[in-house]
Amino acid sequence: MSQDLLSHLPDNQPVAVTTRRSVSRDFLRPYIMIAPALIVFLLFFLFPIGYMIYLSFHEWNFISPEKTYVGLENFKRLVADPLFLEVIRNSLVYTFLSVFLTITISLALSLWLNKKGWIYSFIQGAVFSPHIISLVSVSMLWMWMMDADYGLLNWFVEKLGFEKVPWLTDPKFALISLVIVSVWKSVGYYTLIFIAGLQSIPKNLYEAASLDKTPKWRVLTKITLPMLSPTLFFLTIIGLINSIQVFETINIMTGGGPVNSTKTLVYYIYENGFVFFKLGNASAAGVILLIILTILTLIYFKVLSKKVHYQ
């Protein structure tokens, strides 16, 4: 700073004007900033939930102006409906199978693919790619692959020495086929999250273990899996929440058939609401889905707060 500073500074600039800022504007500002988002939440998320609960206690067919209060009648009817019970069974089977398979496969994949090098990052990308493809394309692609007569899958099946499988047209197989599609689509996504979890395990734990000459399987069971357990638990919940809502693949691939064998909860709501116009019934089923999701979400937040606590 060798030169005279003052000579370089302009003398007659109005540098600051002293005015008070309006207090009420300051006070209102955050509310104005969150208002648009909250209005959308209110109109399209919270109010509809309330409306759905309201409708579940009424009978309405959408056309008549009358909504008749029927108390718990809709729920009683649901429980007594053998189709609804089958729907619940289908949903649970689908959910548990796809979550179990996705988690197991992606955990194994992540332990294997969590390595450096372009080959591994390429494969990670490839495994992940189905996740960003529209469910429409995934469904139609697999319909084609699972085509009983000309499908690629049955060609493999025959090569392996089995008979052709009626993937989507036999009640015994249809739900399993949907599980396969779901696993194929989301296993890469889960794998990458597991890899992110693996990479956040402190390296020095492994260094300490190698100094102690710990055998590989003990490193896996005593260090890796326990350290990964928050991710594991979290992905399980997320998986359950996502799978219980399955709709698109069913709508495109099977339409709930054959013989209702792939009808699930959301499909049931859709059908009752949009095909049969039994809005009370559909809403009651919606409330049951709401209860399931709420329970899962509460567990999720419990785990999340614990996870935060650990860090």
Partner: peptide
């Protein structure tokens, strides 16, 4: 906001449709 994060379209499509 956090509650909304947990509400999927598959749960509320019916009442939103009516609205």
């Amino acid at each position: 906001t956090m509650v909304t994060l947990m509400i999927p379209a598959q749960l509320i499509f019916l009442p939103v449709f009516l609205n």
